[in-house]
């Protein structure tokens, strides 16, 4: 495994830790989109169907378990924890996330590497992950006072995707037959969706002011 891939995974892991830390320590999920979190839980379930059937490495299995476990615990906290759920911005988080699920499923049935169940679910998870951040970005735009942890969480998620792209470029040039158009294009789309956010993130960082996306 190359350093870019490891850095990508670690950034992803840290983003989840930042979010859980926010939920645990200040007992608040303000500014976090439950829609996005539910989509991520669905992404991991459909992607890691092979977790107990194909052994890749101990690292791989542990990371899969962590992403599955953390995504479900975040959803649980936001839905059922008696204190945390009160801070959920339900009225603002109105993105109709099921409108993303069906098109992704249809696209996965039409465009995939192999027409098998696991392969289609894997492809579906790639398409869904690419757009899963949209409810969160919409919520961020609507929220007036976004706290720093929420902004860092979104930034780390975007950074993870950017690092994965660098990892793919590296692997393309160093590994024979490493060619995965579907993964690359969905990853690229996902990163582009962060473009606007990144722009305002760096602007707020440069000017040392609180990030707020323009309406």
């Amino acid at each position: 495994m190359n350093i870019l891939r490891l850095a990508g995974d670690m950034t992803h892991l840290i983003s989840v830790i930042v979010l859980l830390l926010k939920i645990h320590s200040i007992k608040s999920c303000a500014g976090i989109s439950l829609k996005t979190q539910e989509l991520y839980a669905l992404v991991f379930v459909s992607r890691y169907l092979n977790i107990f059937t194909d052994f890749i490495s101990l690292y791989n299995t542990i990371m899969k378990l962590i992403f599955l476990g953390t995504s479900f615990s975040i959803v649980w906290y936001m839905r059922y924890h008696k204190i945390v759920r009160r801070s959920y911005d339900k009225d603002q988080d109105t993105f109709r996330h099921y409108f993303l699920v069906l098109p992704c499923l249809i696209l996965a049935l039409l465009i995939n590497e192999r027409f098998t169940f696991k392969e289609i679910m894997w492809t579906f998870s790639l398409y869904l992950e690419a757009v899963a951040i949209l409810p969160q970005l919409v919520l961020l735009q609507r929220t007036k006072n976004t706290d720093n942890l929420t902004v860092q969480y979104i930034f780390l998620l975007g950074a993870y995707r950017a690092l994965y792209i660098l990892n793919w470029i590296y692997r393309y040039f160093t590994e024979p037959d490493y060619l995965h158009w579907i993964t690359w294009i969905s990853g690229l789309v996902q990163t582009i969706l962060y473009g606007d956010f990144f722009y305002y993130y760096f602007l707020s960082w440069k000017n040392n002011v609180k990030l707020q996306l323009p309406a």
Binding site: N50, F67, E113, R114, K118, T183
Partner: peptide
Amino acid sequence: EAEFSLKDEL
């Protein structure tokens, strides 16, 4: 060849 290709990434 495995039914399930690539998949060493998360």
